[in-house]
Design a protein around this nucleic acid. Structure first.
Lengths: 211, 211
DNA sequence: ACAGAATTCAAACGATTGTTTTAAATGCCC
DNA sequence: GGGCATTTAAAACAATCGTTTGAATTCTGT
């Protein structure tokens, strides 16, 4: 069993630890310790801790975003052809379902999705700036689609509601690993698919509420 | 103009910096620098940085939570007397309106509410554990009320939706100072009251969505 | 097999952190 | 005003952080 190369081992360890402990609470020493590589390997292969974060993001987020963008555009074009506005829930689905599919494709992917969820609500500018550059075009496309789906909503209201929706999304993505709002844990937790359905239903109802 | 005493100056500075930069990214030196007190004063008056965080929380959160609990119980008792289940939007209002009123009562209070918003979505266990102990009873009361308001919802579903709602709330509270999901900033931002109304409408629609 | 490039390694660097220490200053009661 | 407790002040503490260094090692192409 030949181990993956140093770069990949670092990316895997960083992804997992960034997701679990956050960027600033994860030291290079803990990353290189888990990856079983030398401390200096991070700066040698990636240049800096921040560049490592960007590499962790780009490794999976670029392909995932391509998928989500394609799905979004399919929905928009199908609506165009039918001469109708797109349905809000289809737009949300185009956004969420590829994410869930990626998460369930491999056990290791769970950490990455949790990291994305964290990053969506991250207050630290280092992480957020790095993440925003990668995700903003997609958010913009989603907003644009929702404007057509819900033309009766003033843009400022829609934007506000989209922020609400994305907040709920973010927590759904990082909740499974560590629940931030732990009110009660008596009832059995929902599995990923059911959780996504609940999320779509909740956000859809919120977005479509009378104004 | 006699300045407030050392303890209060430290609390004020810590509140503001914790809200702006987060607990771990705020150094005691920056706090004592802004408060114009000596570095050792924090450990002398509060014991530790963590104890300072707790003091910052308790100073305003204890009175605010008392208010919110009273409002919640008023709604529950009024519904009891009328022999009807309480309305979900009244419960949410009992939770949100005192928060907004506190925020608008004094300019300095904005930082505190932003800190509370941050803490609701905080992943770091130091901050969250400290905050959770103070807020959990209130969340539990809200959940209990919503269970009566929406008896058709299975408890697990309601809990999931309440988490969605609280996520949206959290971001609404810390958004004004620094927006975490900055998709677009073209349209004029909503003021506090309008934002709270939108939040109530959105979360209400989401909570009451068919199951 | 060997030169040269690429990678790994142990060690140290400078900066920053929360905390502690020891002494000086201040306020307060008798 | 003297004596005592409280508060402030400056300095140093030990620990951790990201990063750099320079030599040792491994890999690669001919």
């Amino acid at each position: 069993m030949s181990q993956p190369d140093t770069k990949t081992r670092i990316l895997d360890a960083a992804e997992q630890l960034f997701a679990r402990d956050g960027f600033h609470h994860t030291s290079l020493r803990s990353i290189t310790g888990q990856a079983k590589v030398n401390l200096a390997a991070v700066n040698y292969h990636f240049g800096s801790k921040e560049a490592l974060l960007q590499a962790v993001f780009e490794r999976h987020l670029l392909p995932l975003n391509r998928l989500r963008q394609e799905r979004l555009q399919q929905v928009l074009e199908a609506a165009e052809r039918a001469g109708r506005p797109p349905a809000a829930d289809r737009l949300l689905r185009a956004f969420i379902e590829p994410t869930l599919a990626f998460r369930q494709a491999h056990p290791n992917n769970r950490a990455f999705i949790a990291l994305i969820g964290r990053s969506m609500v991250e207050m630290d500018s280092t992480v957020r700036d790095c993440f925003s550059r990668l995700i903003e075009p997609l958010f913009r496309l989603l907003l644009c689609g929702l404007q057509r789906a819900l033309p009766q909503l003033p843009p400022a209201i829609l934007l506000t509601r989209l922020r609400f929706a994305l907040s709920a999304m973010a927590h759904t993505m990082c909740m499974p690993d560590r629940t931030p709002l732990q009110i009660d844990s008596s009832s059995a937790p929902l599995d990923g698919g059911e959780l996504a359905e609940q999320l779509i239903r909740f956000t859809c109802a919120g977005l479509e509420a009378p104004c």
